[in-house]
Design a protein around this nucleic acid. Structure first.
Lengths: 124, 124
DNA sequence: CATACTATATGATATTTACATATAGATATG
DNA sequence: CATATCTATATGTAAATATCATATAGTATG
């Protein structure tokens, strides 16, 4: 029997590919491996990120040369692939930050319009 | 020969389904038809929206009972399907506004972290 | 009479996200 | 010591969303 999945549509407010600039920002502070980024990304994204997508995203970012990895054979614990940001990645982060600023402006414009109608003009 | 399309990935900062709350906000001010929403949506979204996507979104929103339409046979110009927001739609708009506020907070958190590293802590 | 504008709509495809599953060593707990 | 949980990386598949292209038709304009 073919598997049929019906899931509800996503809610509003998701910023597309937000995880990528967040990764670049976190790696700007400290090199880290995929699993180690989970906590910081959870805080930045407002929810626990999908670990599978995280690893896939990291590989894609490395392919794009935004980050570079080296494989660390650990004596204790499983081996880790540790990533650090590249100069190219810093450039991308700047571009992303600029785009995200635009998004902030658009959201702010929406909120002002919304408040004018429904919240008596109060801007929080 | 099979058609092969290679397109570049979308840039950062796109807010998913942002067009829907924008439509609800615009219809809160005034009833309108699809084509007539284009200008306002362009300003809210920061770029001209895809007209095909707009019409499909309107139909979906009507199916969800967020908006209702009536078909206006015009003497001058092409006929129009005029939409107005429903009480249900107002509720959805409130929910969307709340989610978008969360998005604003996350973007603001990102920006603060970014500025701390790259812009000497200056928050614009 | 060709071109552009208003107006609505669908088809096909690309991109992005979500959910599920696989693997494997380490560490804790009863 | 069996088994459950945690750390760690990764792939398969499908759903949700966005983009690009095309179809149709009336109207206005030069």
């Amino acid at each position: 029997m073919p598997k049929v999945t019906i899931s509800k549509p996503r809610s509003f407010g998701n910023v597309e590919k937000f995880i990528e600039p967040c990764i670049l920002l976190l790696l700007s502070k400290d090199s880290s491996h995929g699993y180690g980024l989970m906590d910081g990304l959870g805080k930045h994204c407002g929810h626990n990120v999908d670990i599978g997508n995280l690893y896939r995203t990291l590989r894609k970012m490395e392919k794009n040369k935004w980050i570079v990895s080296d494989w660390q054979k650990n004596k204790i614990g499983p081996d880790k692939r540790t990533y650090k940001i590249s100069p190219n990645g810093v450039t991308i982060l700047h571009e992303a930050a600029s785009s995200l600023k635009t998004a902030q402006r658009l959201l702010s414009r929406f909120r002002n319009g919304y408040n004018r109608i429904y919240d008596n003009g109060v801007t929080v």
